[in-house]
């Protein structure tokens, strides 16, 4: 069958059609659209950005993201693990604060701001 979807990789937002019998994508302006459409139908992935509490009153929360996209169904458990974390020391943008978050191999939570 044909699946219609909007590509979310970049702001062009191409309207894609994926024909699963022919395994063919149309409507994409670039190859990333083809990869997106196939993955979105089989096993959608998303980036997660979030906030982590700190014990410092000057920066009560700092922003974090994952080092790569994760399966959509894992978002809730990753958010829970991030929510339980409290940072109690000064750290720098780019540092890993949780390795293999929520037991997902290779998925790390990294700081996108300094903790000052």
């Amino acid at each position: 069958m044909e699946h219609k979807l909007t590509c979310i990789i970049c702001p062009n937002g191409c309207e894609l059609v994926y024909d699963d019998r022919k395994d063919k994508v149309s409507g994409n302006l670039c190859p990333r659209g083809e990869m997106f459409a196939k993955q979105e139908i089989l096993d959608p992935h998303r980036m997660v950005t979030a906030l982590v509490k700190t014990k410092f009153s000057s920066t009560p929360v700092v922003s974090v993201r994952l080092n790569q996209k994760i399966k959509k169904k894992d978002i809730a458990k990753v958010m829970k693990a991030i929510d339980e974390m409290i940072i109690n020391k000064k750290m720098k943008m780019g540092e890993v604060i949780i390795k293999d978050v929520a037991d997902l191999k290779g998925i790390d939570v990294i700081l996108t701001k300094d903790v000052e």
Binding site: C10, M47, T49, A50, L51, S63, R65, T112
Partner: peptide, 16 residues
């Protein structure tokens, strides 16, 4: 703006 999607055309990366 802690969400990602910044820098796609300038750095070819999806930054926060």
């Amino acid at each position: 703006c802690i969400h990602d999607g910044f820098g796609i055309s300038r750095y070819n990366e999806e930054l926060s």
